[in-house]
């Protein structure tokens, strides 16, 4: 736990995994071109969690789709470990907001987690072990043989996270992953997210509309401005030591950062 960096200061020396520079995205419609993302630049280092916040309708989901290679980038570029993203990259996994629809209801939890591993060059035994250890990590080991629809929303999202983790991505992207679960589950999933970062030294990018969540989770918060989206500011989050739902959120610094980001978003909106 102590060997991995949990503060922003450390991560400057670690390698850049995701690099976005001058990214633009324009939709072509009948009435002409509509710019959605305008000149976006930021990067993410190994083992870092960054949150993207901004007013709704800023094109955050569009950004994630571009990074995941689901939509073409209009100009500029994004790279993962130096490879330009021009299709779904191998080193990336995505956790969707709609947990009820992102798992296959006809596959058991275990088989859902194993599905993306099949075409990786793993033996059947390795595959099973990876799935099992990922489910263990998210606390869903007992539910391995259940079906997604037998689980609550929060549990389904855990399975979706386990699936992403088992894939061992260089970068894990999450699109408002905890937006549709209840508050208690939300806290649990946030801590799960932090734990996974520690355990697998994962690089995580989270889109959220919850400012508290962004402050609690990340090493850096990237604030986007009104459409077309541009980086308004990047706020480093500098808590010492491991985070805790009670004590971290009670820190005066927490309140300070929160109002700082809130102010930025209000100005942007």
């Amino acid at each position: 736990m102590t060997s991995t960096p949990s503060t922003a200061g450390h991560s400057d020396e670690r390698p850049v995994r995701l690099d976005v520079s001058g990214l633009k995205k324009t939709y072509t419609t009948k009435k002409g071109d509509v710019p959605v993302i305008d000149d976006l630049t930021f990067d993410l280092r190994q083992g870092e969690i960054a949150c993207i916040v901004g007013p709704s309708g800023t094109g955050k989901t569009t950004l994630l789709k571009c990074l995941a290679g689901l939509q073409p980038i209009t100009s500029g570029q994004a790279t993962i470990d130096g490879h330009v993203i021009d299709g779904p990259p191998e080193e990336l996994a995505l956790v969707f907001q709609e947990y009820t629809r992102s798992l296959m209801p006809w596959l058991s939890v275990e088989r859902n987690v194993e599905l993306p591993l099949r075409h990786l060059s793993l033996s059947a035994e390795e595959r099973r072990q990876r799935a099992a250890s990922s489910l263990e990590a998210v606390g869903m080991a007992e539910a391995a043989s259940k079906y997604p629809w037998q689980l609550s929303g929060g549990m389904q999202q855990r399975v979706a996270i386990a699936r992403a983790v088992a894939y061992r991505p260089g970068v894990l992207i999450m699109d408002e992953p905890f937006a549709s679960v209840d508050a208690q589950t939300r806290f649990e999933l946030e801590d799960l997210c932090l734990r996974i970062r520690e355990q697998f030294d994962m690089t995580i990018l989270v889109v959220t509309h919850d400012i508290d969540e962004s402050v609690y989770l990340s090493n850096r918060v990237i604030v986007l401005g009104q459409r077309p989206a541009k980086v308004t500011d990047v706020i480093p989050i500098d808590f010492d030591g491991p985070r805790d739902q009670l004590t971290t959120r009670a820190l005066p610094r927490f309140a300070q950062l929160r109002s700082e980001i809130f102010e930025l978003i209000r100005k942007a909106g």
Binding site: P88, A93, L94, F96, E98, S102, P116, H119, R163
Partner: peptide
């Protein structure tokens, strides 16, 4: 969504 899942996980 399932279509996107299939594409992201290649």
């Amino acid at each position: 969504t399932l279509d996107m899942v299939s594409r992201v996980y290649r």
